[in-house]
Design a protein around this nucleic acid. Structure first.
Lengths: 231, 231, 231, 231
DNA sequence: CATGAATGAGGGTTCATTCAT
DNA sequence: AATGAATGAACCCTCATTCAT
């Protein structure tokens, strides 16, 4: 949603501005992010910025858009899961794509994560994000899984979707930190032959799968209530 | 960590300042929170604030401290789980205590959540928080569970702890929003007789339990690798 | 005074630019009016504007010129007062023409009014406006009236002209507001059969006429001085 | 309405700021007036200004208030008109007080005049001004005059009040310019012995009086309609 | 001749912090 | 110990104007 002016900028300049803007909104909340800081570091005039993006909100909207777009682009380029992969194969594929996204575009992922965890201060952007968002998606996935007999009937689809989404958004960062991935790992694709990395992802997925998969044996109910003091 | 001066303040005044400060840091990130706003609403002199807390960082450090302290106090007052509750009984108890905390002190919980999800801009506070934090705790729990045969041996303790922690921090908000809890529900303890609420918590816990519990039967390994395009 | 370039513009475009410029200078004082706003709404290039009018002052000068020109054009098209209408008939005719102008070109009238009431920030434009202005005109009118015996000899021509001019500039707006005239009244000529409107104009004119007309009877002098405190 | 902070300022500083602020709002419309310009010339920090007045609107409100207050103070100190002065004596007194105000506080008068002629951009200030304003006052005066037989019954009170008000606001400036009054004339009270000045005021008042006073003789009606071309 | 990108000063406003009282 | 006035940098945003294309 930036102006044509911005899109026609020399690639080098355009990229520099964009990178710095992404960096800023990844590092700070919407309110704390500073346009002044961006233009100062980008070496452009304040007025130019406003010719490119209209206002702070405009830039922010664009950042969110870039983030979701890049994610979709990446997903589109990924080989889809096998047809017979089933719910769990599909979910595994989803998580991998998110980790990949977070490895390739850590700052865009951070922006998306901020939008998810801190909320978006503008209703229209919030709405747009929700339409493209993951919540609905995970819920559908679980519901289908129940219907197909892959997921246990006692599972609350909403709760399970909530769990998926929360883990989905946080797994990438954990993954990267734990394996100590650096920029070097991002450029080549060495991670995909990294046994440790693959192991890690498998472990998470297996836990989730075991947690919700349909079990032919009877499962007993747990007493889940705990007494609480009056105070 | 406020000065003695602050601690000697008339209780009513001390509480008012604290409440407003908590409100501010719950509503905004560290950078976006405004000291000016706090003192204005508290009706105290700017200079007094700096005599009480030194600077913005000092207040923030105190906010984090209060949050963790209050959580511990609440936990201490809760009837502990039965001795024979086992790992899962204990975890269930942990989760309930967090929900309770979030219901009783939503703003303190929000501050803790911000620290967890947005990160803490000061290394020393970050370190302090980690020492008191939940990550180590959950990891110990899982490790013990494995030793005792409650948790499957194939479970990576770090991953499981990560899952626990992430869900632990987000479950409260989800819980409150989904059940539409209002202030009224916070004052009395009606939630504990609320079938729906209890069901919800059980469902989450059951999924986690099923996900990591030791299963006498043989479990098959999932092929968890997905091919990735070169691009 | 715009460049030949501007005058050669396609009529539709020329008119659009002009209308928006007039709107802007009618709505805001010279300093507060915004060139950027005009070009944005007109959909023309900033550079084009500067090629048409030189600078902000150039446009303003043109706006004032258009205003006086349009007024003169309108007056020229009006049937002049009867030859034997006398001073008061002529003045009545003047006022009506102003009301007409204000109805037909409210924004041009507003620009003229601003120039009159707020002053013009440029000496040369100010001077030019004075030469075409109404002050001299009203003074001549009154002076002639005295010579012809229509106006009382005790009337100070300058004061009377001042009164005429001030009322002349403000009557239109009052008139329109009081009668609640809308755009609809501007398109057709229904106002001229509007009894109330005619009555209103008559009342003003009658008061002015009674105020300055020559009265055969002796008039007594008023003691017009008031004592003033020393402070 | 400035803060206590401002009111407690050293007199010299307070006056300096006020004078410059008045000067700014007398010279420019609300939108065009510049806070930056005021603080720069006053030699104070920007932040200080906002501690004094809250915001631009706050200062403007104060300017308007000072203007009306000063006018009322001046009026209060003036010897009131004789009891038997009648409507016209009273009106004469009103006009003199306005001229006096304009001589003693030309910039405050200019602010009031701007509010009257350009309108006030804030509804609440507009409303407050209307309550203290002159329109209602003049209308009452005229209406009473009709009842008491001082004003001709054919006079439309609204129109007459409108005339009074318009002349009231503009007479001062005209007066000062015509007589070439300088600052010197403002300090001493030499104007009140100035025959020319007294004459001038009398002339205006006499015209107004003659215009609306009740005339025992029958007055003839003027045909006040003028034909208008269709174009 | 038209364009519109670039500029940077200036607009109003809020900020955390200091320090004399 | 408490105060709150003073500060000036930083905030987001708009401006009139220039000039290379």
């Amino acid at each position: 949603m930036p102006t044509e002016t911005f899109n026609s900028l020399p690639e080098e300049k355009r990229a520099r501005i964009l990178d710095l803007a992404i960096e800023e909104f990844a590092a700070y909340s919407y309110k704390a992010a500073s346009i002044s800081n961006i233009v100062r570091r980008a070496g452009i005039a304040k007025g130019s910025f406003y010719q490119y993006f209209g206002d702070k909100k405009g830039l922010y909207r664009y950042m969110v858009e870039i983030s979701t777009d890049q994610k979709m682009t990446l997903v589109k380029d990924l080989r889809p899961p096998e047809n017979n992969a089933g719910l769990f194969g599909y979910m595994r594929w989803q998580f991998l794509s998110e980790v990949l996204f977070e490895i390739r575009h850590p700052e865009l992922a951070q922006i998306a994560y901020r939008a998810f965890s801190e909320g978006v201060p503008f209703p229209d952007i919030r709405e747009e994000l929700r339409r493209r968002g993951t919540t609905q998606f995970f819920k559908q996935l679980i519901t289908q899984g129940i219907v197909r007999g892959e997921v246990a009937v006692w599972v609350d689809p909403d709760i399970a979707a909530f769990m998926m989404e929360v883990l989905f958004y946080q797994f990438g960062k954990y993954f990267i930190e734990r394996l100590g991935l650096t920029e070097d790992d991002f450029t080549n694709n060495s991670i995909y032959e990294n046994q440790e990395a693959q192991q890690l992802l498998s472990n998470l997925m297996d836990i989730l799968e075991a947690g919700i998969k349909r079990d032919p044996e009877q499962r007993k109910d747990f007493p889940s209530t705990v007494e609480v003091p009056s105070g």
